Simulated scan of single mutants.
Amino acid sequence: MTTERIPLFCDIALAERIERVEAQLTAACSDAARRRRSDTTGFVIPIAGGVASFAEENSPFNKVAGLGFGGVPTADELGEIERAFATYDAPVQVELAHLADPDLVAVLSDRGYRLESFENVLGLALPSPVDHAPPAGIEVRRGDDELESWLEMMADTAAHPDDQGVPWHEEFPRAAYISATRDLLGAGVTRYVALRNGEMAGGANYRVRDGVAQFAGAGTAPAHRRHGVQTALLTARIVDATAAGCDVAIVTTQPGSKSQQNVQRQGFDLLYTRAVLVKQP
């Protein structure tokens, strides 16, 4: 007899927990951007269980995250955040989990929000049996030095995305990407570096909250792709998340992407999809 692995099931309670920590991370990164600049530009506004955030121009943290698990926002609440984004001539981007309150779709559609894209949230139940040994020639360590080189390498990975699957619906200038990555670190995110034959080959980020290990910002330099770098980075973070007592690890990918394929090979299951809804100022 063989024992088949049972896929991780995502109920509304788990989705709410994941979306809550995602909203907390968005808010923390937005606050980190203001500390980095030493000014008061931007905002973080709580709304219906989530947050509306504007960090700075071209930041990936300009969005509404975690919405739909704390009731449906009122017209006044939505109007407040729409005016806040309009102050910076920025669109309102809502990342809405399909397990959120279904009434939200009609509410947002009636206010002129337009569906632009989707992204997938995948999860791995912990503890999970993984092969701790990285592929030959690859070493993974927590990044405690070489910050500037690591940032430049990560920007290079973002500038040359894989062409498999649905592309990300938005692109960021190199300087904005580096600033946003600094803000992740300023929000308490741990960075990892992967070395292949002694050369910096890839990197990734990791954060733990409420029993959820968030795997984010993973990338491999183009010259080192298809050599197991991402597998090594995933494994290292799974080991650390298990040691930290987390019961689930999560990662967000584009549908049908190489990243999704990689994490599913490591045992991650598709939990839910987020719709990205945008209203122009």
Rank of each mutant, 00 (worst) to 15 (best):
I238L: 10
V212L: 12
A201R: 00
N205K: 08
R207M: 14
D240L: 00
M200D: 06
R196S: 04
R237N: 13
A180N: 04
E171S: 13
T190M: 14
S179M: 08
Y272R: 10
A221T: 02
G228I: 03
A213M: 03
T220N: 00
E171L: 14
A243E: 14
R237V: 04
A236D: 12
A194Y: 07
G245M: 03
G217T: 09
D269L: 04
L195I: 06
Y272K: 09
T235L: 08
A236H: 09
P173D: 02
V263Q: 11
V248K: 01
A201K: 01
Y206V: 08
D240C: 03
R182Q: 14
S257L: 07
G256L: 03
R226F: 00
A194L: 15
T242C: 06
F172N: 14
L270S: 07
R237C: 13
Q260A: 13
Q266N: 07
G211F: 01
D269G: 02
L234P: 08
T252Q: 15
D269M: 09
G203N: 02
Q261L: 05
I250M: 08
R226D: 10
R226M: 05
H227G: 12
N205V: 06
E171I: 13
Q266L: 10
T231W: 04
H227V: 15
T231C: 03
S259I: 05
I250A: 01
